[in-house]
């Protein structure tokens, strides 16, 4: 990309950030500009109102909803590699499945990626949803393409979208139980399927394979990336 175009897009982003800060003030709103990407956190009660504003306001004009992504933050910043316990053969590799969820943060988030074709800019909108009532208002009335994306987030994370016309499962099998992209859902699933010769039909049984961790998840505190704090940042302003 040549320099002037780069400059222009930077200026556009900063203007957009200013406009966002001007327009969306109050409790629960937060905006940030990181890695050249704008993020706006919206309280979940106000998502439909904000979405409509983002689409129709002259300063934003986000005509297109590019993507909706569900996120499960329950194991955010948690390392699998615990080398505290040393035995005489060496360090024990703590590679067991991670348990529990952090209580201080809301567990789920719905992330909307918006694109404005007329102003050539992008925006990420994030709504946090708690574990007890994972429900957000549907934006499918504002962007029709949200229909399937919300079905997907519902299917994979169990996040409910109030006001959605047709909130069925979309990617998983008919009659699937559970929400596979939640962090506590094992990678190999819960059931396996085979054809039973005796009963002459396909049967579902609990999985027999065991989960192996080939490469443990490890968090390195890298000096190059350290900006004051070494703690994993709160995803809200990440």
């Amino acid at each position: 990309m040549n320099e002037s175009a780069k400059k222009a897009s930077e200026i556009r982003r900063e203007t957009l950030l200013e406009n966002l800060n001007k327009r969306f003030t109050g409790d629960g709103f937060a905006s940030s500009l990181r890695l050249g990407e704008l993020t706006l956190v919206v309280p979940r009660e106000r998502i439909v109102e904000v979405a409509g504003e983002l689409r129709d306001n002259e300063a934003f004009q986000f005509e297109q909803l590019i993507d909706i992504c569900g996120v499960d933050y329950s194991q955010y910043g948690r390392s699998e590699w615990t080398t505290d316990t040393a035995s005489f053969t060496g360090f024990g590799r703590g590679v067991g499945a991670m348990q529990g969820s952090s209580a201080e943060m809301q567990r789920f988030a719905v992330v909307y990626h918006l694109l404005s074709v007329s102003l050539n800019q992008r925006l990420r909108v994030r709504v946090f949803v708690d574990d007890q009532h994972p429900m957000v208002d549907s934006v499918s009335g504002i962007w029709n393409s949200a229909g399937w994306y919300e079905r997907e987030a519902f299917d994979l994370f169990g996040i409910l979208f109030a006001g959605h016309q047709d909130l069925r499962r979309i990617l998983t099998d008919y009659g699937f139980i559970g929400h596979p992209f939640r962090k506590e859902f094992p990678l190999h699933g819960q059931v396996e399927m085979r054809y039973d010769m005796d009963r002459q039909r396909v049967v579902y049984e609990p999985v027999t394979i065991e989960l192996r961790t080939l490469v443990p998840k490890v968090i390195r505190e890298d000096n190059r990336y350290a900006e004051g704090s070494n703690k994993p940042q709160d995803p809200a302003d990440a």
Binding site: I66, D67, C69, V71, D72, Q75, Y76, G77, R78, S79, V111, H113, V215, K217, V218, I219, R220, E221, Y225, P232, P235, A238
Partner: peptide, 16 residues
């Protein structure tokens, strides 16, 4: 598009 969330680990925290 690829949307990657990293929590500082060697694996993506979430990839969309």
């Amino acid at each position: 598009g690829c949307y990657v969330i990293s929590d500082g680990a060697n694996k993506p925290y979430r990839l969309k």
